[in-house]
Write a protein that binds this DNA or RNA. Structure first.
Length: 525
DNA sequence: CGCTTTTGACCTGCGC
DNA sequence: GCGCAGGTCAAAAGCG
């Protein structure tokens, strides 16, 4: 650690230049030096600063001390003239010195903080570089690993299907949901296995998605491409799986019927976040327009309905309502998937939280599918060691991922989701350029693949409060503290997970988000 | 003037 | 069939 006083120079130099730095520093040197002449027995504090001042100025600035005096000689001279024999003036002079000392202390503190900030930035850049290199390596390794797993899991998936077809109710729904998640994993593996590494890189650079739902849709599309509804204006397959359980069936195949139902359910999947916030709505990087408000039963607080307005026809909606039991808790429920690239503010968290969802839904956690079948709100944490952080609900007609982030930052196990420790000091601003500005699920795939391969449910997340609010990244050092205490993070987290759960319309329904026909309110996600 | 919010009406699904 | 609750629409009002 560098000496504190050195940072004073460093701070001022970086802002104003050396010459002005000297002048500024001379302001105090002059003042104090003159006071030293006036009063022999200065207090220890004062003397300390004079000494340190001379130390960090160094020999190369000795000549400048006198030149700086010119700016302040008036006061100094007047002080000298007035001090002699005047007790009152002497006390004023003492106060003046104390103020100067305080100012010097503040400057020293600022300098020290600034220097530490610079040092952290350097460290951050180094770690980012290492992280990215490692990440790329892991992607390749993970790909091979998952290909092997896919081969072995294919048989199990097919064996489970007859049993599931006999199941009814929400248990069935949940099972289907999780099963499809698992099969999705295989589909993804198949797809990935067919693509070269270059293709994957290309995919990272813009091709939409590889989310669970999307891949399921692709598979379904392959199976039922000629049986899909064409009631959307563009002739694209109706997003619809939302309406599949009441609309005309696409074909008579039982598998396809089941697939339709499952797709509907998956599309209905929601992500709910509970976070403490005084604001009426937490910002998550997206633009929302309120289109309705209703009083929900059992809750005196109204429920507000928002839809994403970042792109025309974006089907993503969210509901915001305060918790009836604790009105400081804001419950935000996201539904649907964006049909547009997310802004960095939202994508930052999306890149990591979607990985959380990928891991969460990947079936890698053995207890997940059991819990989802048998409980309303699964009391089991989907992330080991974080029992209250993420839960899945199957009681609703659609699966819901619930993130309870209402615990205080120092109590909740949020670090397991985004360990902001030096282990993961990266942030969005230092992501490789080709990863920035791309659909979140690509990054989620990247990270999710990594996490799955590692058997690690911890998610590297590093977001700043500024990012959450759509502002440029300013300080990375303060990010960690900001995130853990920022409810915006939670909302962003939810948006990201929502994106990967329902992100299915980039390729086959990206344009079919016809604005708000009466019955498409639910099926456009 | 354009966008957003408000708010009552309307539609749909579901349980009885 | 009826009532209830959730969700959405759309006209009116508000706002910058």
């Amino acid at each position: 650690m560098e000496p504190v006083d050195h940072h004073i120079v460093s701070l001022v130099q970086s802002s104003d230049g050396i010459k002005r730095v000297v002048n500024e520093m001379d302001f105090f040197a002059d003042d104090r030096s003159s006071k030293q002449h006036d009063k022999a027995d200065d207090d220890v504090h004062h003397h300390h600063h004079v000494k340190t001042e001379s130390e960090h100025h160094g020999a190369d600035q000795d000549d400048d001390v006198n030149t700086g005096l010119n700016l302040l000689t008036t006061n100094t001279a007047s002080e000298k003239s007035s001090v002699a024999g005047d007790g009152i003036t002497s006390s004023q002079n003492l106060k003046e010195k104390q103020r100067v000392n305080q100012l010097a202390d503040v400057r020293a503190e600022l300098g020290r903080i600034n220097a530490e900030n610079q040092r952290l930035k350097l460290t951050l850049n180094q770690v980012n570089s290492n992280y990215y290199a490692l990440q790329m390596h892991l992607v390749s390794l993970t790909q091979r690993h998952r290909n092997r797993i896919a081969e072995s899991s294919e048989a199990n998936t097919q064996m489970n299907r007859p049993i599931e077809e006999k199941t009814h109710g929400e248990g069935m729904a949940a099972r289907q949901f999780m099963d499809l998640v698992q099969t999705e994993t295989k589909a993804e593996n198949d797809e990935l296995s067919e693509s070269s590494s270059e293709d994957r890189c290309q995919e990272l650079s813009g091709s939409p998605g590889n989310t669970i739902v999307e891949s399921m849709e692709r598979r379904q599309k392959n199976n039922t491409s000629r049986n899909q509804r064409e009631d959307t204006p563009e002739g694209l397959p109706h997003p619809a799986g939302w309406l599949s359980n009441k609309g005309p069936k696409f074909n008579t195949s039982k598998d396809n019927e089941q697939a339709q139902q499952t797709m509907a359910m998956i599309r209905k999947a929601r992500v709910s976040v509970r976070a403490r916030s005084e604001a009426s709505m937490i910002s998550d990087g997206c633009q929302w327009r309120k289109y309705g408000q209703k009083m929900a039963k059992g809750n005196p607080c109204p429920r507000a309905y928002y839809r994403c307005t970042m792109a025309t026809g974006c089907p993503v909606r969210k509901q915001v309502q305060r918790c009836a039991e604790d009105r400081t808790i804001l419950v935000t429920t996201y539904e649907g998937n964006h049909n547009h690239p997310l802004p960095p503010a939202a994508m930052a968290m999306a890149s990591t939280t979607s990985a959380a969802a990928s891991t969460l839904l990947s079936g890698s956690m053995p207890s997940a599918d059991h819990g989802i079948m048998n409980s309303n709100i699964v009391p089991k944490g989907m992330l080991p060691g974080s029992p209250n952080l993420i839960t899945l609900s199957a009681s609703a007609p659609f699966p819901t991922v619930t993130l309870d982030l209402t615990h205080p930052p120092n109590q909740r196990p949020l670090h397991q989701l985004h360990p902001l420790s030096p282990n993961w000091p990266h942030n969005i601003s230092s992501f490789p350029a080709h990863l920035l500005g791309h659909p979140i699920y690509n990054q989620s795939k990247l990270l999710g693949t990594y996490l799955s391969s590692q058997g690690n449910n911890e998610l590297p997340v590093h977001l700043s409060q500024n990012q959450m609010q759509g502002h440029p990244m300013v300080d990375t050092a303060a990010t960690a503290a900001a995130i853990t205490a920022d409810p915006n993070f939670t909302a962003a987290l939810v948006a990201a997970i929502t994106s990967i759960i329902g992100n299915s319309h980039r390729d086959n329904s990206g344009n079919n988000n016809s604005t708000t026909s009466r019955n498409t309110g639910d099926n456009n996600t």
